[in-house]
Design a protein around this nucleic acid. Structure first.
Lengths: 133, 133
DNA sequence: CGGATCGTCAACCATGTGGTTGAATATGCC
DNA sequence: GGCATATTCAACCACATGGTTGACGATCCG
């Protein structure tokens, strides 16, 4: 087993630690990684490629994301594939929407954020969100 | 002016720093404070009352929440009133819903969580979320 | 005025975080 | 086997975070 994520209970109900989820999301590098994984599953080396920092640093970030339950990692051969796990995010989203008083989602705002953040991080995956639909 | 929050641009569109918003939300004390402010505006001393920690510590937490734009503070007499500012939260919510792929909100999950966290402020903060569909 | 209350500030401390580098562990390939 | 690739581990460093305490300015009240 590669991951040691937040484990699901016997009843199959996911247990999410909001401390971990939000502090994982507080880092722009990690949010950029999530944005990349939104496109497709990726190997660790490929995740690290657009960033300036070392592979070890990215590996740590992936560990934090996995502990928070935001991604899962599966080893196939010598490559570890990273996959977005939206359930933990949904838990945070539920919490925030509660405080946001359930107003409708502004999709344009979301795309603006993603573009800004990807640009600012230097992760030049220019096709990340815009063309997909 | 009491606060030095994230300022609104000339166009009146709020500029939200997701780093600040998420790292502010990563602390259970601060989330509990937001939950309290969801009920009503409160004076700093009253905010601090249910917590074990010092007033100075709560004052710091309120500073962090204000810098993130999550609350505002207004001084009236010698009392500083704290008020929830849902706009910054909504920005984070938009971001998260994007990753959550716009699934419907589970209101029951949110209410369960709020009860838990208010009941045990400072304790382990977890929320349960039924698996996706 | 003098004293009590409200809240912050400053200094300090322990621990956590994000990064580095170099060594170590697996796995695939010839 | 032997070497290259993929990823983590361990030690280290600078700095941020969350808490404390004590002093301080501001405000209300008798």
């Amino acid at each position: 087993m590669v991951d040691d994520p937040q484990k699901a209970g016997d009843n199959g109900i996911m247990v999410v630690n909001l401390d971990m989820v939000f502090s994982a999301l507080a880092d722009p590098t990690r949010r950029a990684i999530l944005a990349m994984l939104l496109e497709d599953d990726m190997a660790v080396t490929d995740v690290a490629e657009p960033f300036q920092m070392s592979l070890a640093a990215i590996s740590k970030h992936l560990g934090i994301l996995a502990e928070a339950g935001l991604i899962s990692r599966e080893k196939r051969g010598r490559v570890i594939w990273c996959k977005l796990e939206p359930d933990a995010l949904r838990a945070g989203s539920v919490w925030m929407q509660g405080f946001g008083q359930f107003e409708p989602v502004d999709l344009d705002a979301f795309e603006r954020f993603l573009e800004e953040e990807l640009a600012a991080t230097g992760a030049e995956t220019e096709t990340t969100l815009t063309p997909s639909a």
